[in-house]
Design a protein around this nucleic acid. Structure first.
Lengths: 217, 217
DNA sequence: TAGATTGTTAATCGATTAACAATC
DNA sequence: TAGATTGTTAATCGATTAACAATC
């Protein structure tokens, strides 16, 4: 990373989208692209794209633009997609099972190695060849396998104790689908939150303001 | 809304979180709170909270703070949670079924009235008393029921045609779990995107930068 | 009344956009 | 070489924070 300066959260939030669009362009057979063309496609300014890319290094060539394949490799490295991280899933309810079976963890450098649920109903059922185990085997499993990350798909009321346990077992990173605010107690952990209900509330807000707001002024 | 001035996207993105925390405080029996206390709990500044709240009106009282119950009502109104919006779900795969069965649409003012999937495998199965129908009945259903919103849980390659169809049937709002960029073709529509893989890539980035970055400087 | 805390204006900070010299 | 487009610096814009008068 260029000079190891801190990357702003605004830039970070745009990285996955860059990667996604570049992969799509590459799959469409495109070899090179200018910041101007990419800006047009992604709905950004060319200036912003060049600023963003130059947080990490000078990937382009004056008069030519950017080589898409090279850019994809650079972004994969920036995002750490090639570095293997092991993950376990906590909570095998509807959402947990959907995430376990649909998400391509491998493409992002994660390998799902264990699934756990407190409900004995699920015990033994396999998802992608991984059997669902009981909550009581989490400690032993973590001591033996030292997973790097935990996907939290459990109710908010069970999350605090579970996070305490997982942190005590050495897990430092969480993909958090629960409504428990991990950073408040553990600001040093790596956390990405997915708040589906927040997203649906945002849509409700957008709808309300498009219908009631546009009428008058 | 105060003066009907445009609300910035920064403020909008914080609204659901305010609502969530206020509800939690209320459920814990708290009656009032100052911006300073709320800032402490949510990890924000008191100044920002007062600025945010005052985009919508003066809900507080000098020397006292804010009445939590009143605040919750105001936010529910701001977010449009009390205005009924009908919704259909397109795609009853793992993720679609999880969303249909777990998400409390009602709390956000949405009512799920139809579920559709192209795969005849799911035909007739009910989720929350709503039977899954075939894709071929979408047109008739929409003409009869005029749903306000569609939840898109289908593969990106099927999304463009489906959005074209739904837009032609009068749907103006989308909760989009697919990787298809609806706003590019229809900038006037109401869209909230959920990009799970973007979120996981962001976590990968955070992990990479916490481990490799913190060593040296 | 005195103390507390808001609502709001002003100051600061950071992010985005514009401009342009460097250079392929 | 001439044209194109980058990398980077400067200008602008917007969001956050600080300050304080208003007032409960």
């Amino acid at each position: 990373m260029k000079g190891n300066k801190e990357i702003s959260s605004s830039v970070i939030s745009r990285l996955p989208r860059y990667y996604r669009f570049l992969c799509e362009l590459y799959n469409n057979g495109l070899k090179r692209i200018s910041s101007k063309e990419l800006a047009e496609i992604m709905g950004l300014t060319a200036s912003q794209i060049r600023q963003d890319f130059n947080c990490f290094g000078g990937f382009g060539q004056q008069g030519y633009g950017y080589n898409i394949e090279q850019l994809i490799e650079e972004f994969a490295a920036i995002l750490g997609l090639n570095e293997l991280k092991t993950a376990i899933l906590i909570g095998a309810g509807n959402l947990g099972r959907a995430v376990a079976s649909q998400m391509s963890f491998e493409d992002k450098g994660f390998k799902l190695i264990g699934i756990f649920d407190c409900d004995p109903l699920y015990k033994g059922i396999k998802i992608r060849d991984i059997p669902i185990s009981g909550d009581d085997s989490i400690t032993e499993f973590c001591k033996g396998n030292e997973p790097d990350m935990a996907v939290l798909c459990l109710p908010a009321d069970k999350a605090p104790d579970m996070v305490d346990l997982l942190v005590s077992l050495g897990i430092k990173s969480f993909w958090n689908f629960s409504h428990y605010d991990i950073h408040r107690k553990y600001p040093e952990l790596n956390v990405a939150n997915v708040h589906l209900s927040d997203s649906l509330m945002t849509l409700s807000f957008i709808i309300k303001n498009s219908t009631s707001g546009d009428n008058n002024d």
